[in-house]
Amino acid sequence: MQITGAEVIPVNADVTPLGEPDGIAPYESNHDSVEDVDRVLVRLDTDEGVSGWGEMLAALASPEATKAVFESVVIPPLIGRSVWEINALIEEFYFPYVKIEPFIGAVEMAMFDALGKHLDVPVSKLLGGAYDPAVDVAYAVGILPREDSRRHARKAVADGFSVLKTKAGPDWRQDVDRIVAMDEAADGNLEFRLDPNQGWSIDEAIRVGAELGRSGVDVQYLEQPVRIDSVGNYSSLRSRLQIPIAVNEDTYFKHNLMTLVREDAIDVAVVDIIPAGGIVEMRKLAGLAEHAGVSLAHHCGFDLGVKTAAMVHAVAATPAISLAADTVYYGWAEHVIDDPFTVEEGQIEVPDGPGLGVTVDEEKLERCRLD
Results as ranks from 00 to 15, higher is better:
residue 59 A to Q: 14
residue 59 A to I: 10
residue 59 A to G: 08
residue 59 A to R: 09
residue 60 L to E: 12
residue 60 L to S: 12
residue 61 A to L: 14
residue 62 S to N: 02
residue 62 S to K: 01
residue 63 P to F: 04
residue 63 P to K: 04
residue 64 E to R: 14
residue 64 E to N: 10
residue 65 A to P: 00
residue 65 A to W: 08
residue 66 T to A: 00
residue 66 T to Q: 01
residue 66 T to Y: 07
residue 66 T to M: 06
residue 67 K to F: 00
residue 67 K to L: 02
residue 67 K to M: 10
residue 68 A to Y: 11
residue 69 V to A: 10
residue 70 F to I: 07
residue 72 S to L: 09
residue 72 S to P: 03
residue 73 V to M: 10
residue 73 V to W: 06
residue 73 V to K: 09
residue 75 I to N: 11
residue 76 P to H: 03
residue 76 P to Y: 07
residue 76 P to T: 07
residue 77 P to I: 12
residue 77 P to E: 07
residue 78 L to F: 06
residue 79 I to L: 15
residue 79 I to H: 10
residue 79 I to Q: 08
residue 81 R to P: 03
residue 81 R to L: 06
residue 81 R to E: 13
residue 81 R to T: 12
residue 82 S to P: 09
residue 82 S to E: 15
residue 83 V to E: 11
residue 84 W to M: 05
residue 85 E to G: 08
residue 85 E to L: 06
residue 85 E to V: 01
residue 85 E to W: 08
residue 86 I to W: 03
residue 86 I to R: 01
residue 86 I to L: 00
residue 86 I to M: 09
residue 87 N to E: 15
residue 87 N to H: 12
residue 87 N to D: 15
residue 88 A to K: 14
residue 89 L to D: 08
residue 89 L to P: 01
residue 89 L to Q: 09
residue 90 I to W: 03
residue 91 E to C: 04
residue 91 E to I: 02
residue 91 E to K: 15
residue 92 E to Q: 15
residue 92 E to H: 11
residue 92 E to V: 07
residue 93 F to S: 03
residue 93 F to W: 09
residue 95 F to R: 02
residue 95 F to W: 13
residue 95 F to I: 10
residue 95 F to M: 13
residue 96 P to V: 03
residue 97 Y to W: 15
residue 97 Y to V: 01
residue 99 K to C: 05
residue 100 I to K: 02
residue 101 E to K: 05
residue 101 E to C: 00
residue 102 P to A: 08
